[in-house]
């Protein structure tokens, strides 16, 4: 048996113990650290998480009625905390960098103005994706309406570089392939008509992603590695449109 095979088996065995729960204390912490950086370990952990689920008996034990109330309380507290911190940060930044803050304020006002307008313009929202950058900031919200097969865009980007385009892609949940939806040369574009084929890409999408490309879009129909934002694509059934 080769040294590498030995090492792989040893790591796999650690992955098993991590999932089973017998890896404790420092060993567990060390493994968790390695796990963050290793796709192979992540695959191995996922394998055991999936397979060991077969041992669960699927009984129910109803939690105390107060549990849901506590969850809501914590969710709201963290949301309010976030908003308060955001407001505080905004004020601080405003006085330090007034021009930037002014632009941000315009965006916030725009956001408030956008939704009522959008609500009145779009008869049906069937799919929505909020595309966020790696810091969690929303850069683009994309909504589609089946009736007229349009995609509505709400940008949080102020402008694009003049010699660049951005391109929107759909990652298929069926085969994992990434396919182009639209090339966008300006953040003033707020509506993209979709043909039947492109509409189907949206309906099959697990994610939408936004990349920066050469002017005119990717020449090879593949996204560049300049990923700007990514968002899960969510379908709304007709009686549940609440966004």
């Amino acid at each position: 048996m080769s040294g590498r095979q030995d090492r792989d088996e040893s790591l796999d065995s650690l992955a098993f113990e991590y999932v089973a729960g017998t890896l404790r204390g420092e060993e567990r912490a060390d493994f968790a650290q390695q796990l963050k950086a290793s796709d192979v370990l992540q695959e191995s952990v996922l394998f055991w998480e999936t397979q060991l689920m077969g041992l669960q008996t699927h009984n129910m034990r109803m939690p105390a009625p107060s549990v849901w109330g506590n969850i809501v309380g914590k969710v709201n507290a963290s949301r309010e905390g976030g908003v308060a911190a955001e407001k505080q940060g905004f004020l601080a930044r405003f006085w330090q960098w007034a021009p930037t803050s002014f632009a941000a304020a315009i965006l916030v006002v725009g956001l408030f103005l956008f939704y009522p307008t959008l609500e009145s313009q779009r008869p049906n929202t069937d799919y929505i994706a909020v595309l966020t950058d790696d810091t969690g900031r929303a850069l683009l919200t994309a909504l589609t309406a089946e009736e007229n097969k349009d995609m509505w865009l709400k940008w949080e980007l102020e402008a694009l570089d003049e010699d660049r385009s951005v391109q929107l892609w759909a990652i298929s949940k069926r085969d994992g392939e990434t396919r182009p939806i639209a090339v966008l040369d300006s953040v003033s574009i707020d509506k993209v008509p979709l043909d039947e084929a492109t509409w189907r890409l949206v309906t099959d999408a697990e994610y939408l992603v936004l990349t920066e490309e050469e002017l005119g879009g990717s020449a090879i129909d593949e996204p560049s590695d300049r990923l700007l934002a990514k968002g899960i694509c969510v379908r709304f059934s007709p009686d549940e449109r609440r966004i």
Binding site: R61, M62, V75, I232, V234
Partner: peptide, 30 residues
Amino acid sequence: DLIARCTLRDQHSLKLLYDKVGGYLNAVIF
């Protein structure tokens, strides 16, 4: 679908999720 809606901060979906799997997860934890 419910998890996806949680990403949009839809608390109603979190509640549906809780109603569907809360009892099961509580049994696992217990």
